[in-house]
Simulated assay, not measured.
Amino acid sequence: MVSDLAVLAARFAEALRGHGVAVGADRSACFAQALVAVDPQRAEEVYWCALATLVSTPDEIAVLDHVFDVVFGGGFDPADFRGDHPEGTLTAGAVTAGDGQAGEEREVRLSTVGSAAERLSSRDFAELTPDELALLREAMRRLRIATPVRRSRRKRTAAGGRRVDMRETLRQARRTGGEPAVLRRWVPREKPRRLVVLCDISGSMEAHARAMLQLLVCANLGAKAEVFTFATRLTRLTRVLARDPAEAMRRAGEEAPDWSGGTRIGAALREFLDTFGARGMARGAVVVIVSDGWETGDPAPLAAQMARLSRLAFRVVWVNPRTAQPGYRPLAGGMAAVWPYCDAVVAAHRLDALDDLLAAVG
């Protein structure tokens, strides 16, 4: 039975791929696992497994319904169970399949659409419209920003610990008449390092700034980042971004009045260090600065502030989308000043380049 379900999963996924749905090996495996777990006895049970694992956009549901109808000979109408689905874009790609009666064939027009995330993953964020950027939210939710761990002041009991936990040992000794029959040991707890993000929202970085802030909203559940934006002034957005992505982006625009203004990176960095960083927020943290390095002022103060930051932070990662250009060199005054103090410089200019950013942070 398991082998039959595996064959069914493979052939059905292949049929969807043949009609424009980007069904990769990961989705096929999830579909097969769902079939094994459910052990379907009726066609609608197979359909729900396919709907939960093989499609990622509303347009693909139309394709799934047509292919399912073809494969199962029209014996199951999904609309009977979930209501009519929105019509997809129909194309000229047609298939013929038996409708359950010998000698008869029918033609089914199928929607040929690919996954939105896969279509947009190789496009620069600067080329995307706000609606297209919103389509990447689901893909960004699958990403996780994980910072390195550090020792905490707290401890936990562990058999292999080097130090004896006297309090726990004496507490356990109460069960043996005050005699410490077993020595309890402890090791330090570990917790993720703080993530601090400073995002340039000047005119030259507007599109990439929106993408980075959306990434933080979607993938920041584990990292709990401190988020600041800057152009002509520094704005703290940590609480604003702890919301729904659409609402968070709207509120971010309201909270940062200098959106699309000029850039004073050195002044913003000095304000951050004086107000938050030196007091503890940047100490031992992973600091990510998102900017193209276009400093409107003298780059010398910027270099001095970067030197301060590098002494406080555990790691400094600079995100500059311009570094993706062939033959890029840090010749601009701002980038030339900060380059020696960066532990990593990445482009992160499109969805399929975000892995470099996640690796640099981690």
Rank of each mutant, 00 (worst) to 15 (best):
L5Q: 12
L8S: 14
R17H: 12
H19R: 15
A22R: 06
V23H: 05
V23A: 04
A25E: 13
R27D: 01
C30G: 05
A32V: 05
L35K: 03
A37F: 06
E44W: 09
E45N: 07
E45Y: 07
A50K: 05
A52I: 01
V55L: 00
S56M: 04
I61Q: 12
A62E: 10
H66E: 15
F72S: 04
T96K: 09
G98K: 01
E104R: 15
T112W: 12
S115I: 00
A116E: 14
A117I: 03
L120T: 02
D124T: 01
P130S: 09
E132P: 05
M140P: 00
M140G: 00
A146M: 13
A146Q: 13
G160D: 15
M166H: 10
E168N: 04
R171F: 06
R174E: 14
G177Y: 09
G178K: 04
K191I: 03
P192M: 08
R194I: 02
L195F: 02
V196A: 02
V197I: 11
C199P: 02
S204Y: 02
A211W: 06
N220F: 01
A223N: 13
V227H: 05
T229Q: 11
R233Q: 15
L237G: 04
R243K: 13
A246C: 08
A246E: 12
E254Y: 09
P257M: 04
P257S: 09
G266K: 06
A268P: 12
L269E: 02
L269C: 14
F276A: 15
A278C: 14
M281S: 15
A285T: 08
V287R: 11
S291Q: 04
A303E: 08
A303K: 01
Q305P: 04
S310L: 12
R311T: 11
V316E: 04
N320D: 12
R322W: 11
T323W: 00
Y328M: 02
A332Q: 06
G334W: 00
V345E: 01
A353I: 08
A353L: 07
D356S: 10
L358I: 07
A360E: 03
